[in-house]
C-alpha cells in the first residue's frame, strides 16, 4: 500500500486510506488485499474504476521507462503524450488480457506496439534538430516582463543562496561550477545544491498549481 502511495503522488489514494479507517474491518481488509497487477486489472475489468485507476498509476512509471529508453531524444512532454496513448490503448484493449495469465507480457506487448507506432508517426517530424530552423525562428526576446515576475515569485519560495544559484545557471547561462565558485562551493557541492534547489522549486510549483 505504501509502495503504491509513494509511486503515485498527486493521486487521491491518501483520501482512500483515511476513509478506509472509517470502514468496517472486512472492507478495510479488502482494500489492503493482493495488489498485484493481475489482481488490480482483474478487478478493473469487473468494473472497479478505482482499481483501474490504481493499475494505470502503478504501471505508468514502468511505461515511462520503456518510452524513455526508446526515445530519450524526445522532449519530456512528447514522451508524456506517448505515455497517454499507451494508457488509452491499455484501457481500450484491457479485455484482451485473460485473467489467470501474467499481466506483464500482455502489457509490454501493448506498450511496444503503441510506442513503435507513436515513434513511427512522429519520428520523422520530431527528430529534426532545432538548428535547422534557426533562421526561421524569431530571436528569443530577453524574457518577457511577466515571465521575469513569475520567476521572481518562484525563486522567492526557496532560500536566497539556492535562488542565486538557480538564477546564475538557468537565467544567466553559467555552468553549475562557475555559479558555485562565486558562492564558495566546490563543483560537486554546487551540482548537488543546484539539484536540490530545482527539486524544491518544482515542489513549490506543484503547491502553487493546486
Amino acid at each position: 500500500m505504501t509502495g503504491v502511495l509513494a509511486i503515485s503522488p498527486g493521486c487521491d489514494y491518501a483520501g482512500a486510506v483515511v476513509s478506509a479507517r472509517l470502514m468496517p474491518a472486512r472492507q478495510e481488509a479488502a482494500l489492503h488485499r493482493d495488489d498485484s497487477w493481475e489482481s488490480l486489472l482483474a478487478r478493473a475489468n469487473d468494473g472497479d474504476g478505482a482499481a483501474f485507476a490504481r493499475f494505470l498509476m502503478v504501471v505508468s512509471p514502468t511505461m515511462r521507462a520503456v518510452i524513455r529508453r526508446r526515445g530519450c531524444d524526445l522532449p519530456a512532454d512528447q514522451q508524456e503524450d506517448i505515455l497517454q496513448e499507451v494508457l488509452l490503448a491499455i484501457h481500450l484493449k484491457r479485455q484482451t488480457w485473460r485473467r489467470g495469465e501474467p499481466v506483464r507480457p500482455w502489457l509490454y506487448a501493448i506498450a511496444r506496439y503503441k510506442v513503435v507506432d507513436a515513434f513511427r508517426r512522429r519520428g520523422a517530424v520530431v527528430n529534426l534538430p532545432i538548428e535547422d530552423f534557426a533562421d526561421l525562428l524569431p530571436e528569443e526576446q530577453a524574457a518577457s516582463p511577466l515571465a521575469l515576475r513569475d520567476t521572481d515569485v518562484m525563486l522567492a519560495q526557496i532560500d536566497s543562496r539556492s535562488a542565486g544559484l538557480v538564477r546564475a545557471v538557468a537565467l544567466e547561462g553559467k555552468t553549475a561550477e562557475e555559479a558555485g565558485a562565486a558562492l564558495g562551493l566546490t563543483a560537486g557541492a554546487a551540482r548537488v545544491a543546484l539539484h536540490r534547489a530545482m527539486k524544491r522549486l518544482s515542489e513549490a510549483a506543484g503547491r502553487m498549481m493546486k
Partner: peptide, 14 residues
Amino acid sequence: TEDLIRALAGQPVP
C-alpha cells in the same frame, strides 16, 4: 496524465 487516468477509470469497461 493523472487527469487522463481519472477519466479512463470513470469510463465503462470496453
